[in-house]
Design a protein around this nucleic acid. Structure first.
Lengths: 333, 333
DNA sequence: TTGTATGCGTTATCAC
DNA sequence: GTGATAACGCATACAA
């Protein structure tokens, strides 16, 4: 591949001049500039991003660490980031971390080796200290969907406790008393906080939430099916189900319908995330809107700001709150 | 950030020695090796991937160009690629190209500037010649979901004509005669080929497919809704619908159900892709299995092979064929 | 076994 | 306006 040197030779000028026309440098004669440009396209010149990154000490690229591309939730997240990197002419370096300590660490470190200047990280497996240390090292390090007090200005997160409360309150206000919960089996902070919120709402309503009414499974449709099966198997009586996310809710609905249990006639159900699925399953799913895309865009924006040395004013915080989206899966009794 | 030089100074050895221990080079004394290693972790040394790429002329990264991360189809594709890059310890550089000539071109060129050695490209907007030229320039250039005869050994693609035939044949064999088609409004090759296949099956069955029975819309759920609305508005009689993809099928089902038209009682429908959606909508969608993930993995594998100078034997080709997945959305009449 | 020197493709700082 | 030239961080051929 042609280098700047080849161009210089071909054009009969020096490296420096070529470099200037590439970067629209100021002091170049109009005719030399044209000539060099012409030769560049002729020879199919393409600047070498690696060399450039090496000398300028910046990479014009943003690293992304997320758990699992297959999950529509993460796909949405990635999309949110993509909208801003595109606007800023920044490349995305993507690493998947599958919610395992080792893999997440590896993902971040690889990105660091590439000297990305900004980084949006979705980490659930790594502990606070490790992440704080990374934040210290990398100016453009931003966490998404996680809150760590020590680096609160680097966190873009959702208030999951509020979310849990919200869904429980809606179910209770709709007249339900026997309410089951299907949650994620991954003992990360999200499901725990959501259940905390649910518990708060239950207590205020004078209800209790026994452990037997909570089923844990993988946070996908299959997990939703399994969780409902277990609930049915245990003969737990319930007219309401609070799901960890829309995928689980959809799996649960699917399974209930296979058992000819009408939704919302016999059982009401509330999801979480408001991914596309929620709108297109039958009955349409009542759920919590999780503004992932907006949050992801914010996180990318933020990472780029920090990287360029223009951090937002001190004391700002990036907490988002879910809202309820009422559709058809909850019956008022 | 600490460089190889810092380590050398701290350890009292030369650059070369440090470089050797980093790359597990052969001729290093055991105790110096240990000492250097220790210092490296102490100082938190991280090799600079840019510098390394510059000198070795290889980047250990694979570029990916796809249309739209939000689409579950592409998310699956990305996931397929990710499984193999992870195994090969290769970074993913991701660019979205949104089916526009300019954007797709830009995406590829940015990747090229980063000197990725391998590249999996999903391009629908660029013309054959442009892509052939790229393939000539980049050894590890592989196309996915597109077939160009001149570079057939760089194409991993699905036989869309066969797919179209297959879905039409199944619908016809189930006794349907009035069959409508909802297709993608993007005039890329895929929808055209699928309709070609459908036409072939129709002709063989002595049926015809008037243009009025085909509706074009965006290839998503919303498009599916609109397409069905138009069909209903035009009072086209149909008992069967062939959809461009599962998303459109799902939108169509949704809209039909809103009009209290029973599926498959009144209208049968067949999708395309077999994304998760198909399994979880109600009724479960009969559709064509599109082995995207497998194909994406193959494409990544292939790109890496070509890049490392070990191309598969000549004359091989990577055509995949869709198969039908019978579920609940088709009624035999 | 270890060290020295050179170059990868750029940008940037000087001179001219 | 233009041209040498020194970095950037690393790998490697060649010396020692």
């Amino acid at each position: 591949m042609a280098t700047i040197k080849d161009i210089a030779n071909a054009a009969g000028v020096s490296l420096a001049t070529v470099s200037r026309v590439i970067n629209n440098g100021p002091k170049v004669g109009d005719k030399t500039r044209e000539r060099v440009k012409k030769i560049m396209v002729e020879m199919g010149y393409r600047p070498n991003a690696n060399a450039r990154a090496l000398v300028t000490q910046k990479s014009a690229s943003l690293g992304v660490v997320l758990a699992e591309l297959l999950d529509p939730f993460f796909a949405t997240l990635a999309h949110g980031i993509e909208t801003v990197t595109r606007r800023h002419n920044v490349q995305i370096l993507m690493s998947a971390g599958s919610i395992e300590k080792k893999t997440e660490l590896k993902a971040i470190e690889t990105l660091l080796e590439h000297r990305v200047e900004a980084m949006v990280v979705h980490s659930k497996a790594l502990d606070d200290d490790t992440l704080i240390e990374f934040a210290r090292q990398v100016p453009g390090f931003v966490l998404i969907n996680r809150y760590i007090p020590e680096i609160s200005n680097r966190c873009v997160w959702l208030d999951n406790v509020a979310g849990g409360r919200l869904m429980a309150e809606h179910m209770i206000r709709s007249g339900h008393k026997n309410i089951a919960v299907i949650s994620s089996r991954y003992q990360i902070v999200d499901p725990i906080q959501r259940i905390d919120g649910i518990r708060q709402a239950f207590e205020e309503a004078g209800l209790s939430l026994p452990e037997s009414s909570i089923e844990y499974a993988t946070p996908d449709q299959e997990g939703g099916e399994k969780a409902i099966q277990n609930l049915l198997a245990k003969s737990i009586p319930f007219t309401g189900v609070l799901a960890y996310n829309d995928a689980m809710a959809s799996g649960a609905m699917s399974m209930l319908q296979d058992h000819h249990i009408d939704i919302p006639g016999k059982v009401s159900i509330i999801g979480y995330d408001d991914v596309l699925l929620a709108k297109y399953c039958r009955p349409k799913l009542t759920t919590l809107r999780y503004p992932v895309e907006m949050m992801a865009a914010k996180a990318a924006e933020l990472a780029l700001q920090y990287a360029s040395g223009q951090p937002p004013e001190d004391g700002v915080t990036f907490k988002y709150t879910p809202t309820i989206v009422k559709r058809e899966s909850v019956l008022t009794i």
